[in-house]
Design a protein around this nucleic acid. Structure first.
Lengths: 342, 342
DNA sequence: ATTAACTATGTAATCGATTACACGAAAGTA
DNA sequence: TACTTTCGTGTAATCGATTACATAGTTAAT
């Protein structure tokens, strides 16, 4: 019923050895053309399928790569994975998915599981902001398995990364708010021990500086990436002595929450208050009051990460290859920051 | 530098055989306690990692399962995958992702690639509506690899499935429109050779029947799941002699397009026209004019599919196990169909 | 005619772990 | 004492494919 056909079965049937069969299947030039044809036909007729596990064991390459993300059901990460899969598919690599749920322990487990599974490379967005998992990272590198960080990166020798210029993202978003005439701009940030949030914040700060706006510590709120967090932020900000007239949020979800709360209070957007987000989540475009947001080109980021992996895989150079790719963020200007109609 | 430690290395160091090491590591009761401890300590100190490929080859089980979806960057599929991953993680299975991009040829390739990779099971949402790939499906089953369809299913002997009751989904969405006083309800359907779309359509039709509304062929439009398609549909429907006053769309994206086009024409929603969608995409909730939609509980669907897989894997019964799980759809009533404020 | 050079294929080791079977030593039994 | 168990470990086959090396049969070269 479910007999597995091996090259030995083919060999037996043709009265030759498995070695010859293997060579014929691999198009080895030393094999006589007639034998080759015979083997190929027999293999097809017996419905032979190469056992990749045996091949993997022999060659030491599994043709699998691991991808670790905080969660998969976010448009950003799903799109990155899509990019990775599409780029690697033609090269015969399969993509194994792991989720950390923002838990460093899970990240650690995932790393070791992937090493155990003999993946040929690991592409990931880091969750651990402490140095807990550095040992695991080094373990990967030591096994000569390419390790590539995307989006959320971390400085580790020998690790390549594909990120966007978060500083610039923060800068252009803030600049757009300034261009609209906003004078006091607040910022919803994420966990600033993560470089991406730190850099977006720095870009925001620089934009203020470059345009003669004094930076106000009170205007910076560190929060989660959720609708609820956005609402709370507005509640806090509007109770300040001098409330702001705009927000640049590191999260589209928080931006949405802010907008919902502002509407609740009958504050007009963008006339009285402008809001810009980050990530360009699908809903920012769909809203009736569409939300200005910084696009991170996740698909491109995935493809680029995959390309970096392809460049590095198989290279036995003991010299550490380290490539840092930085993609340009793109501001999608929408109604939430468009006071003037062209 | 990157020396791979095997049980032979441990054996050599301790002057015993690899068999003993293997047994010690596997907690075989025949091994003396002192030896076991010694082996475990040595293994740890040498940083030994079991080679899963060797294990997989020997046991015939890879501990990988394959998941095939049309695309991963859709909230629905990403959520299903999340559910699958979370349910299977504690059991030591890794999830390999494949995308078909709605292309039957890709589906076919993916199936064979996964078989080649010796996955222990395949969970998928079918793309192929013809019978092109039936041979591939049978190939999977013949290898005694559990095959489970989720969401988009197909009748094949021996294949279990986890779906929602699409008929009921279509029914309750339509019923809600009727309850709001809508008299002539249109339906945007998908490719009806796919059972899910057929069933949603049938549910829609039945709801009309049960409520004394005559079914009108002209009101049913088959289209893609896109914003553009929704706009086009409205353009066609509003040119009919008797235009409808509501739409039940099999796609949230098409529902959104419809809403955008209706607004363009200054038609009030929900007062003059009601719209209900399907899938409960995140944006339906976020819109200012939130959209009523049928939830398919994708996370639960993923988990359930994984559980069905776990029940079936390893069972050598030649009797075909076939389990059909049908989840209940849940209507999320929102502003786009709420004429009365409680 | 004799040796060199190919050609096509076979032999056997290898990747790393598991496991049926074998076996010597220790312990228990009559 | 002689015989049976039990215990702990070693031997070697196995999973399926690849490949360095060996070899028999041809052909070419001197």
């Amino acid at each position: 019923m479910s007999e597995k056909i091996t090259i030995y079965d083919i060999a037996k049937k043709l009265n030759i050895t498995a070695a010859t069969v293997s060579r014929a299947l691999n198009n080895n030039p030393k094999i006589k053309e007639s034998t080759k044809q015979l083997v190929l036909e027999t293999a097809a007729s017996m419905n032979y399928k190469q056992n990749k596990l045996a091949l993997a064991l022999k060659s030491g390459r599994s043709n699998n790569i691991g991808v670790i993300v905080p969660r998969i059901d976010s448009n950003f990460f799903a799109s990155v994975i899509r990019g990775i899969e599409e780029e690697l598919y033609p090269h015969g690599y399969q993509v194994i998915i792991c989720q950390t749920h923002e838990n460093p322990k899970r990240e650690n487990e995932n790393l070791y599981t992937l090493i155990d599974a003999q993946v040929d490379g690991i592409l990931m967005s880091v969750t651990d902001v402490t140095n807990e998992n550095d040992k695991a990272f080094h373990n990967v590198l030591q096994k000569n398995v390419p390790l590539i960080f995307f989006d959320r990166s971390k400085h580790i020798d020998g690790v390549s990364s594909v990120t966007i210029n978060d500083f610039k993202g923060g800068y252009i978003a803030t600049k757009q708010l300034i261009n609209q005439g906003c004078k006091s701009i607040a910022h919803l940030s994420g966990d600033q021990s993560l470089e991406i949030f730190k850099n977006r914040f720095l870009g925001y700060k620089q934009a203020l500086l470059d345009n003669g706006i004094t930076f106000n510590e009170e205007y910076v709120i560190q929060s989660k990436s959720s609708v609820e967090a956005g609402k709370n932020a507005i509640n806090i900000l509007l109770e300040l002595e001098t409330p702001p007239d705009a927000i640049f949020s590191s999260s589209d979800f928080a931006a949405l929450g802010a907008i919902q709360e502002l509407r609740e209070r009958n504050i007009n957007i963008p006339q009285d208050f402008c809001v810009a987000g980050f990530s360009n989540e699908p809903f920012t475009k769909f809203m009736e009051l569409s939300i200005t947001s910084v696009d991170q080109s996740p698909l491109e980021m995935g493809k680029m990460s995959a390309r970096v992996f392809l460049e590095q895989v198989g290279k036995t150079d003991t010299i550490k290859i380290e490539k840092k790719v930085v993609l340009a963020p793109e501001l999608h200007i929408r109604k939430s920051t468009s006071r003037t109609r062209a």
